[in-house]
Design a protein around this nucleic acid. Structure first.
Length: 295
DNA sequence: TTGCAGGGGTCAA
DNA sequence: TTGACCCCTGCA
């Protein structure tokens, strides 16, 4: 069947989406926006989202989803993988100088996933002052302790726990996930969300600035984490999450000096305009993989 | 073996 | 604006 410019075909190997461009699994899953996708030997990736395990393989404009069905591809995965967005157009717009040309070329298959806001929120609270292997470990522990078990290809996976699941245990119990001082942030944030004191669903309706401030009411959420949540759950694209890597690459390649967060944001906003968030992700991936700015 | 720095920041003073 | 902060890893 045809769906929004793609051909969807049900086959023995899974649901095939024909005609997908600008998709490189490694770039998408390893550019730092998501923490729960694991590479398989055949080049595919397996992960959990929306309470389901799926496996995805991309090859020659064909995207193959395993362990799902056409309904879910239309209802969930089309948006999750941002298939409605024209990344060729975005890359043309964003690659406006030599630095960006190189960054875009390097991460040419990046797509910004539309992840579930709650999971993204907790994941990036965990990310603060930490590193990727450890962030993954903490998230895995959190899921295996509080999530629901799923089995795929003989292997156990876990759904990302809901706020209520976390609150059913004590704060002390959360130490199991080895999050250190972030555990109390997670617990407090779960409490806020469960009590509807901050509404994640309403963020889309707000101006970007207001949405950021709303998120910052949560424990463990500052500018960086708030912007990551907005960008990586597809709520806003005009944000520029600035971590140490992005800060370094901006200082090194654009500003030619040490700069404050404000200077970087002002420059980036003027320079990249509304495609700010996409520019950030190409830059971040490029900077981190190539260790730009590290002596 | 032990010690130390630093890591996708945030918070409080 | 500046340190402390859990925990873990890599590296002298």
């Amino acid at each position: 069947m045809e769906y929004k410019g793609y051909e969807l075909i049900e086959t023995k190997e899974g649901i095939v989406v024909e005609g997908v461009r600008d998709f490189e699994s490694k770039h998408i899953f390893q550019c730092g926006q998501a923490f729960r996708w694991e590479a398989e030997k055949d080049g595919s990736y397996t992960g959990v989202a929306y309470g389901r395990v799926i496996n995805v393989l991309y090859n020659e404009r064909r995207l193959i989803f395993k362990n799902t069905n056409i309904e879910d591809v239309i209802k969930l995965w089309y948006d999750y993988f941002d298939l409605g967005r024209d990344y060729t157009w975005i890359k043309d717009r964003v690659a406006k100088d030599l630095v960006m040309k190189e960054a875009v070329n390097f991460g040419h298959g990046i797509r910004i996933l539309n992840q579930e806001p709650w999971e993204t929120l907790i994941s990036f609270i965990i990310s603060s002052n930490s590193n990727i292997p450890r962030i993954k470990k903490v998230i895995d522990l959190l899921a295996s302790e509080y999530g629901e078990a799923l089995v795929y290809e003989g292997k156990q996976y876990y759904t990302f726990p809901e706020p209520e699941n976390i609150l059913a245990g004590s704060l002390e119990q959360l130490d199991i996930c080895r999050g250190g001082y972030r555990c109390k942030y997670i617990y407090n944030t779960a409490n806020f969300i469960a009590k509807n004191m901050v509404g994640l669903d309403g963020l889309r309706e707000l101006l970007t600035k207001e949405a950021r401030e709303e998120l910052k009411r949560l424990s463990g959420v500052g500018n960086k984490v708030a912007d990551c949540v907005l960008l990586f759950s597809g709520i806003k694209q005009d944000v520029f999450p600035t971590d140490v890597w992005v800060k370094r690459v901006m200082e090194e390649l654009y500003l030619n000096k040490e700069a404050s967060m404000n200077e970087i944001h002002t420059f980036a906003r003027d320079y990249f305009g509304e495609l700010l968030g996409f520019a950030q992700q190409y830059l971040f991936y490029y900077a981190r993989e190539n260790r730009i700015g590290i002596k």
